[in-house]
Design a protein around this nucleic acid. Structure first.
Lengths: 350, 350
DNA sequence: CTGAAAGCGCTAACAT
DNA sequence: ATGTTAGCGCTTTCAG
């Protein structure tokens, strides 16, 4: 028997024409039950699979979407991708996975490749949302959903994000409620919308109670753990007085900072409170117990996947879909009530 | 202008035939520089992309490989996939990512889907290597590389693994050198080849110095952190005497066990030494500092990717490729010299 | 309900 | 060095 039977082989063996087999493949109504059964049996017998490429050639849907992330190794993205993959499977969609490492060039290559392979849609969670890449995609009506981070002007895109402003606000509010008045911020890149928004919310909460953020209490990081560690070191070593709490733009940096504090003999939370953002699994470890703002990463993936595929399947239905998920404060053990003025004096004096 | 220009549109506009354009697409030699330049310009102008499906229809290579893992959310797999993706990109290959959660049914669905999409090859890192799935793949000469875990009879497959026997041996040897004589083992599933092999190496090292493993000191886990925690609890609470060290079949369980010990007020490493396996990033955290056996996960991914693609590109060259990488002991801070007999007596008496 | 025939966009002989 | 032509396997009118 032939290795890869074609539709013609099946048709011949079942004593019908290609068209009939094709109809059965596509679940068309107008086939008599008898014929259908006979053909299906032949298909089964030969383990027949229609040729994906021959099908795609007709300019129809391909059943594949591209997923562009910065780095699958980063737990944030791996959970996101998992969410996407899970819904894609339900729709029998496959995904092409692409890592860009945040480099524009890589992103271009990947997007080129995705277009060449005629994906039905793309989920972009990469950091470098260059105008150029986006324009490219939109020009050839590829369905597009942005997730987690947005370009400056995102009014015309489908997207799924968490409300980062509210998240920053929740974090700050929590610290304020505990009596903290001087709170440092460990920042991510300022081109990144989540960083920008989290900071905005943070600052707003402070503003509401008449507090502000000193320039010196904003330390630059890059969302990676090491940069948080460095930032923590810098903050801890502030010569004169230091803040009593830190809000880090993400968990990785928060954990890094916490490690720096511990290493310098400071007690978290009593000498320094720490709040992160993301709620990565690591933060739940018994030896970390990070208080953080949780965004349901998996859900963001799942929702963006569903949004994308629904758009592909029903291109005409509905306009732009922009989904903003609420974040949630997760209180664990890295925040404490601010020490009284006297006690703080004593401690920082040592 | 047309949305998606075809090779014919380009040919017409450049005043040549389809074939000439096709030759240029495929970097054939026999095209005059002048023509080539002219055609390339037209292509560029229209941002022309050859139709992937039309190309694939010729029964040629598709430039896509399938990657089947248990769960991309697991750091082990995400690093592995990253390694694969990186080499694929070099060859301009795309990957289809599939998660099976270790369920045979999911694996079947995914493999079906991969075959339907005519992938050039598959990298299987999933746990459930059923005979059935493998047979399916081999029947329709799809190139195949197994990675990380192997079926019982793997003599006829291409694979890339770490030498788990040696790894187990190294771990045990390290503990033995520190004076430990009673060492517990936190096991993974016994269907898993890494668990089996690590245990074999572990037992061999013990045997060489006349030691053995008591049945009671083998605690069952499932490679996940929670199971390690439970195992740790169980070990710590052994009523009479307890081992002075534990070797866990992977890092996740080792960390779980360590957390259990800490929670019970035991001091790691002085009351209990712990060794893991994998060297996941988490183990390097300052608050963990896990001594472990390192396997270069990224390399395994990269090598398996390269092996697969080389096989696809040169199907005739060379026979089966079976690569066994050496593991390496990474000494951090969870192992200590065994306490003297007297001190141990005191402690366990409390 | 079923069949015949014309493409889909590209590659690969075979001509010129 | 370039053009012509015949498929690749399937979908899709259009006829019966």
């Amino acid at each position: 028997m032939k290795k890869n039977p074609t539709i013609l082989d099946i048709a011949r063996e079942a004593g019908v024409s290609k068209s009939t087999v094709s109809r059965i493949l596509n679940n068309a109504e107008n086939v008599s039950p008898g014929t259908r059964k006979r053909v299906l049996e032949v298909m089964l017998k030969h383990r027949y699979r229609p040729n994906f490429f021959a099908r795609g050639l007709g300019g129809r849907r391909t059943g594949v979407v591209g997923v562009v992330v910065t780095d699958i190794t980063n737990p944030f993205y791996s959970v996101l991708v998992r969410g996407i993959e899970d819904v894609c499977r339900v729709y029998r969609y496959n995904i092409y996975l692409c890592n860009t490492d945040g480099r524009e060039e890589e992103e271009k290559i990947h997007i080129d490749s995705l277009m060449e392979r005629k994906v039905d849609g793309v989920i972009l969670a990469s950091t470098m949302l260059t105008e150029h890449s986006l324009a490219d995609l939109l020009e050839r009506d590829v369905k597009l959903v942005l997730v987690a981070r947005l370009p400056e002007d995102h009014s015309s895109f489908n997207f799924v994000v968490v409300d980062n402003v509210m998240g920053g606000y929740l974090a700050a509010k929590h610290l304020i409620t505990l009596g903290h008045e001087r709170i440092a911020y460990i920042a991510g890149p300022w081109l990144s919308s989540p960083n920008l928004d989290r900071f905005a919310g943070f600052r707003r909460a402070l503003g509401e109670v008449g507090l502000g953020v000193d320039e010196k209490d904003i330390v630059q990081g890059d969302f990676k753990m090491e940069s948080g560690y460095l930032a923590g070191m810098k903050l801890a070593k502030s010569l004169s007085s230091r803040p009593s709490a830190v809000f880090a733009a993400n968990d990785a940096m928060a954990v890094g900072a916490k490690e720096a504090f511990s290493e310098l003999g400071m007690d978290v939370p009593h000498d320094m409170s720490v709040v992160g953002f993301d709620d990565i699994p690591l933060g739940a470890l018994r030896c970390v117990q990070l208080t953080t703002v949780s965004q349901s990463i998996y859900d963001q993936g799942a929702i963006s996947g569903k949004t994308l595929i629904e758009r592909i399947l029903h291109p005409d239905k509905g306009g732009i879909q922009q989904i903003v998920l609420p974040p949630k404060l997760v209180v664990r053990k890295t925040c404490a009530r601010v020490p009284t003025r006297e006690k703080r004096g004593e401690r920082s004096g040592t």
